[in-house]
Design a protein around this nucleic acid. Structure first.
Lengths: 210, 210
DNA sequence: GTCTATACGACGATAGAC
DNA sequence: GTCTATCGTCGTATAGAC
């Protein structure tokens, strides 16, 4: 069982580093210093590796989503939660760098990925409600759905967007920036507290940069 | 010069319909009912076709961006402008379905694409200022940059996001939805007028659906 | 300008020896 | 489990005839 795990580990590293589409099964075998034949003994091609990696990601993310139930009772809790979410995604970031291409190549993953995003969206909608009940935010009923969509868009395309504007990637620092970005979407709905909340956010993220 | 134009036309159609990555130069030749050799006589491979298509897109979009200078003096103007922008993008939508993958395959396009997005962002930032001067919106100074980023994200990934959540695509109806989505980002900053503006927006987009 | 034919390389996949 | 060797497929690219 040792080689099997090494394959997964190194593949994840490689995919995150150089992207999935540019790598062939032979490349992966080379990086592991094993033969292509051996690789095929453990996984029937690159597909199987990717599916195995997705299994792990899907499982871990759903644990996080379940964990949020009732656990977000303040704006600060919301920060922390978004952090946890983004860190998990970052660990499997190759899935998000080129989602469209990936799902086109692996249609069976598309079904599962969609279901996962739907779960994420429910989650966000739930949190919006949870924050509104004690009056921490106040959102026009008609804007709730667009707001949830907007947050999902950000949570889905932060990595792709970063890759698009810059040549060198920010690395983990991008996580801070994205949490800030998501929180900025909520700020206008905190009413009179907005300037205060924003000030606190900015201070926090300035510190995080160092 | 006839065949050359037909190649571009049919390629654009095909790319928009079925995506770029799945199509080979032979596929394109087949669709045109010409031989691969003939295709290569006009364009040195799929790359050259894509570059030629990008030339057209880049040029047309920059014309639109230039046209907005000083032309956005009300929230309604802003609608219209976003419409024009999205319609242009829709005509070349294959560029946006899988941007990351595409730019990885054609690094020279990446440079130009980034420059185009930067121009778009300047444009949006300008419009935010233009709307703020007569008091149509009021945005906390610290939120301006995140707001512009957010709008750019939406304008960049609306197509990818749609492809992600659904199996069948909305087609042009998605344009309406996305304009609405962008306008929702501005609404919280219209102050007391927000409920009115939102009401007007919703009415408008309900009509557009039919 | 357009065709047919073909060479070349990359990648996925498997068979069989150790 | 791991290796070497090999085959088939597919996409790119060019040569040469019409």
């Amino acid at each position: 069982m040792k080689t099997r795990d090494r394959i997964l580990e190194v593949s994840l590293l490689l995919f995150n580093e150089e992207g999935e589409s540019g790598l062939s099964s032979v490349d992966i075998a080379n990086a592991l210093e094993i033969s292509p034949g051996n690789l095929y003994y453990h996984f029937k091609g690159k597909d199987a590796i990717i599916r195995a990696l997705y299994d792990r990601f899907d499982e871990e993310l759903r644990v996080i989503l379940r964990g949020s139930k009732g656990g977000v009772a303040s704006i600060e809790d919301n920060w922390v939660y978004i952090y946890i979410l983004l860190e998990e995604i970052y660990d499997f970031r190759f899935f998000y760098r080129d989602i469209a291409g990936l799902l086109a190549r692996y249609p069976d993953l598309a079904v599962r990925f969609r279901s996962l995003i739907a779960a994420k969206r429910n989650n966000i909608a739930q949190i919006i409600d949870d924050l509104e009940r004690p009056g921490l935010i106040r959102v026009d009923k008609r804007l709730k759905s667009p707001l949830a969509d907007q947050i999902i868009t950000t949570l889905t395309f932060w990595l792709a967007g970063d890759a698009l504007t810059k040549d060198v990637h920010d690395g983990p620092a991008l996580i801070h920036k994205t949490v800030f970005q998501v929180m900025c979407l909520m700020v206008p709905y905190t009413g009179e507290a907005a300037p205060t909340v924003l000030g606190r956010m900015i201070r926090h993220f300035e510190e995080a940069k160092q």
